[in-house]
């Protein structure tokens, strides 16, 4: 039965969608933001470590979708890794829960430089609906920036997989773009 499906995939082609184009403006904006030294060494692939800093788990569902065969983020050189020590990118969801702040900072410290931090979802961007709660760290603009420096913000509740994918691919383009720029 498995082979019948594999054979159909070979004949009908995979279920994976064509990649959407990357807006050049977005890339240039990000290039300006990124630290020039970091751009040179990372090449076209990025290892991502996910971290839930208090999420409602809605964002996690859409990160799982990135790994499904329709989005298949690995074809862009993006892959999730098990440990922050192997990561180039920390993909962080949720408002910064005080009960998880220490673990977030330790994870950030464990991630080798050069590294990027992506705040994914309205909660990670500025606390979202949970803004003002005693249970989250809302200093500054709120969100996870209250705990670690953030390089890229992806709004949405939750952001759709297509939007997350474009943002992460922009990170690659900006990284590679920097070297040719």
């Amino acid at each position: 039965m498995v082979w019948r499906r594999v054979f159909r995939t070979l004949t009908e082609g995979p279920a994976t969608e064509r990649a959407a184009p990357i807006a050049d403006a977005a890339t240039q904006a990000l290039v300006a933001q990124l630290d020039a030294a970091a751009q040179v060494r990372l090449g076209r692939s990025l290892s991502i470590r996910h971290l839930d800093a208090g999420s409602c788990n809605g964002c996690e569902l859409e990160i799982h979708a990135l790994n499904n065969i329709v989005y298949d983020l690995e074809r862009f050189g993006l892959r999730f890794v098990a440990s922050p020590r192997h990561a180039d990118v920390l993909l962080v969801t949720g408002p910064l829960s005080r009960n998880l702040r220490e673990a977030l900072v330790q994870t950030w410290q464990a991630t080798p430089d050069p590294k990027w931090v992506v705040a994914m979802g309205d909660c990670a961007v500025d606390g979202g609906v949970f803004k003002g709660s005693y249970a989250i760290d809302g200093t500054g603009t709120g969100g996870i920036a209250a705990g670690v420096p953030v390089d890229l913000k992806i709004p949405g509740c939750p952001p759709a997989p297509a939007a997350i994918l474009i943002a992460l691919r922009t990170l690659i383009e900006a990284n590679v773009g920097g070297r040719d720029g």
Partner: peptide, 25 residues
């Protein structure tokens, strides 16, 4: 307890329509 967000206290003194956004999350 790591994802505790103080949801119940945020819902207090809100209208049901406003509080529903917390129930949905």
């Amino acid at each position: 307890g790591y994802t505790h967000k103080g949801t119940l206290s945020l819902m207090r003194s809100k209208s049901p329509r406003a509080a529903a956004r917390f129930a949905a999350r």
